[in-house]
Design a protein around this nucleic acid. Structure first.
Lengths: 325, 325
DNA sequence: CTGAAAGCGCTAACAG
DNA sequence: CTGTTAGCGCTTTCAG
């Protein structure tokens, strides 16, 4: 059942049907009614593909995350989808994993589908910068990177000031009287580097000596970090790069009989559900994924619309206090 | 840059370019090479929209969940996307929320886009059964419901045996010596009803008296349930309908100084990350979202392919032991 | 092995 | 207000 069938059945031209379909006003009430009756009778659904061919747009944007199962990405992706939907776009979800090849593969697929824009979530995607094909692939497609950067002429970023974020955690601990604050480094992305730099800067600002423990961003990684922490002399607080790691640290400390926050304080990052599930609840840096998602879509649409002065945006994180500090 | 430009530049017909693009074998090596050179030179990307118009398929499926931020849905959606991608499909992500209207709205949008199929995740979508438009909307679109049902001729389900799942939890508690096992009911979906029925059946099977507490599927809801539980006389265990609720219950018990599992045992449902984050870790029913996602895609593709005998599938949950029982 | 021509379902000038 | 006519970029007969 296509527009021709409808036109024939209503005894009008396809142009008229198209006009009714698109709510144009240059159709007489009588004709409109006649056409609408036929439309309703068959529950007619126009083909967005055919429309897309003409309009060169399917009103679709692609969102690439490493893995939507990671709560922080899920929140960002949700916010993006929500805002896109509000603006009449649908969202293609892509879980790229860590491998660059997979990311490129997804990009190729969605570029073929002529998505109106692409949002890359997470600084893990910065690795794509080394792909020479990338430039050619994305020349015609507006791209926004949420919390990362891409060196391309038509790509912009929404960045979270992670440097400041970790600083907030350190300042808070110092204010609580801590001096020997250890950083638990758990990832190796661009964003993770900004966090660590933020820690170093904050410690130096307070005239304190930085110390760092390396581990994995998992529960087990956190537990190991806690064990390592307990062997350090007179360290009293841990600043973690991820909530999950912080929860692991908490577990490790509690299992060793260390009281939190009395004997040791812990901070997390992301202020995810994880931070609220554990007991005591974590003090964590809220890096505003909903805001980042919203801004990303705003930025993307201004790029799609070819509007002037799209500028990269920086979101300010906030410290969310829990009982772990 | 379209197929005409390539054809002109390579000095061949568009038909030949199309053949090269699609890897057909009826092209001479020389011609193929010539065309491929031009293709590569311009990093040519064919338009999936134009192809879609001819093929009447964009190799896309829509996945509707209430909210991807819920870990269980995120895991299911991830599994679906992963499997779809493997089979050459892209996935449209839709967060419908609880309202039926929103669900219908998303369905209309993706049906217009001629998705090859739709996967509805979660029994919350069963509410759509009351929508009369639904039937007309989905007549031509293969539909799979993951953990729910839709009364439509061309829709099939992948169901989790939640009745059995809760039964496993009860059996385990009974085996541990518990008699007074309370059910914490936290949702009102089809799946939640199956869980409660499973509880009742299991209790009756063991000749025990069922008791039930009603609350919300949130941390706060769990905490309230724990408080209510403590007022009951001689109850020693709680079976919860969701991990998040169970974590709340745990929190409530620990805060009241009740030791888990010594004084009271708790089980969750979903075996999500939540279950592992809390201390002690939860014994939880693993309802296999990855398996459900995989089966859903398999089923959907057999529907799309018009293959014979697609049948609804039932997945068996398993009990994942933690330290909370 | 190669190309001409028709058409997928729709929108958009351009005439009436 | 309405219809005719071209495409949008591609695949697919059907002839050579």
């Amino acid at each position: 059942m296509n527009i021709y069938d409808i036109a024939r059945e209503a005894g009008v031209s396809i142009t008229t049907v198209s006009r009714v379909l698109n709510g144009k006003d240059n159709v007489s009430p009588a004709t409109r009614q006649k056409v609408e009756a036929v439309l309703a009778l068959h529950s007619y659904v126009p083909s967005a593909i055919a429309r897309g061919l003409v309009a060169k747009s399917m009103k679709t944007v692609a969102v690439l995350t490493v893995d939507v199962r990671v709560p922080h990405y899920a929140r960002t992706a949700y916010a993006i989808e929500h805002e896109c939907s509000r603006r009449g776009y649908n969202v293609l979800m892509c879980n790229t994993g860590e491998a660059k090849e997979a990311g490129m593969h997804y990009l190729e697929a969605v570029i073929e589908k002529q998505v109106d824009g692409v949002i890359l979530v997470g600084s893990a995607h910065s690795a794509l910068n080394t792909e020479s094909r990338l430039k050619k692939l994305l020349v015609r497609t507006p791209t926004v990177v949420a919390n990362g950067r891409l060196k391309l002429p038509n790509s912009y970023s929404v960045l979270v000031d992670d440097h400041l974020g970790v600083g907030l955690a350190v300042d808070h601990l110092v204010q609580k009287g801590h001096q020997d604050i250890v950083y638990v480094r758990d990832m190796d992305t661009e964003s993770a580097r900004r966090k660590y730099d933020g820690y170093l800067a904050a410690m130096s600002r307070h005239g304190l000596t930085p110390r760092m423990l390396d581990t994995q961003p998992t529960l087990a990684g956190g537990i190991e970090a806690a064990q390592a922490f307990l062997k350090l002399k007179k360290a009293t607080a841990l600043v973690c790069g991820e909530d999950l790691t912080a929860v692991g640290v908490l577990k490790g400390l509690l299992r060793a009989g260390v009281r939190v926050p009395e004997d040791a304080a812990v901070t997390g990052y992301n202020n995810s559900e994880y931070a609220h599930i554990c007991e005591p609840e974590l003090t964590s840096v809220d890096n505003k994924p909903e805001m980042v998602g919203l801004m990303s879509v705003q930025l993307l649409e201004s790029l799609i619309g070819g509007r002037a002065d799209p500028a990269s945006v920086v979101v300010q994180p906030q410290l969310a206090l829990g009982q772990s500090t």
